[in-house]
Simulated assay, not measured.
Amino acid sequence: MIRILLADDEAMIRAGVRAILAADDGIEVVAEAGDGRTAVELTLAHRPDVALLDIRMPSMDGLAAAVEIRRSAPDTAVIILTTFSEDSYIAQALGGGASGFLLKSGDPRELIAGVHAVAEGAAYLSPRVASRVIAELSSGPAARMGARVEARERVEALTAREREVLALVGAGLANAEIARRLHLVEGTVKAYVSAILTRLDVRNRVQAAIIAYEAGLVGPTPA
């Protein structure tokens, strides 16, 4: 059972999201909050698997709450669910440690898929958000060259096995899928991923996946 904390300052929105989540027998909403600070407090009290946060909330917005939750309850994954898709919000959310970014205007099936993905240790971006990230990564070869060189240097510090795991993280695979692909125990994969995040000095799998892309481990190898 995937245990969820749901935080949104609009009760009707919470009710709608709760109804969508209730359609999946493997998901349970264990706590709800109407502001960011309460969301952090309830996360510490209930230790949910996933915290689903709106961005604009009183007392503490969802972006700040995401940072605090990832700091104080690192086993709880964070998904930002919002009506806002500006690039600055995406960057702040991913930089703050969120593993998912979903739009309220998206297909309800995206919400279910996103919850399952991050609960399994993967990352999930709504298709519209993912297209923006990919466009940014793919734009301007000259502008991206510095990032690619830096990414390659950081990846070179990893062991061969860690690079192999990182490539699969970059491809969007969850820990269980990586374990099956590499014929490893899932706990071993989790340890590898934790070590990779530490050695790359990144907060979450999304940031690690971007480095994997920039370093040429995923998709077309940069020129």
Rank of each mutant, 00 (worst) to 15 (best):
V218G: 00
R199S: 03
L102Q: 10
A151E: 02
A209S: 09
A11P: 10
E162F: 00
I55K: 11
L53R: 09
L94C: 08
A130S: 13
I211E: 02
I2H: 07
R70C: 06
V67T: 13
I27Y: 15
R56C: 03
A93C: 08
N175F: 05
A142M: 12
A98I: 02
L166S: 02
A147R: 09
S105A: 15
R37S: 06
E120M: 04
A73H: 07
A33F: 03
E164D: 12
G36S: 09
V165E: 00
A123H: 02
A151I: 05
A31W: 12
D54E: 12
A93D: 05
L173Q: 04
R205W: 00
A119F: 05
Y192L: 00
L21P: 04
I112P: 04
I20E: 12
R18V: 02
M60N: 07
A123Q: 00
R132L: 13
L42N: 03
D87C: 01
L6R: 09
L173A: 07
E68T: 13
A15S: 14
T221E: 13
L125Q: 06
P222W: 02
R203H: 07
A19P: 04
A64V: 09
T221R: 15
V185F: 12
L53S: 13
I178P: 05
V78G: 13
R180H: 11
L42Q: 14
A212F: 00
D75W: 14
G62V: 06
Y192W: 01
S72F: 14
R144W: 00
T83C: 11
E10F: 08
G106L: 03
Y124P: 04
A64P: 02
V189S: 01
I27H: 08
S99A: 14
E86T: 11
G16I: 11
A160H: 03
A135N: 13
V30N: 04
E214S: 12
I90L: 14
A223P: 11
R161P: 02
T83V: 14
R18I: 06
E164Y: 00
A135Y: 05
D9S: 09
L52T: 11
T159E: 12
A23T: 13
S139P: 01
T221N: 09
N204T: 05
E156M: 14
N204S: 06
L42Y: 09
R128L: 10
L5S: 06
A66K: 06
L184H: 09
A51K: 08
A91G: 05
V206D: 01
R3P: 01
L102N: 11
T76A: 15
K190I: 08
D107E: 14
H183V: 10
D35T: 06
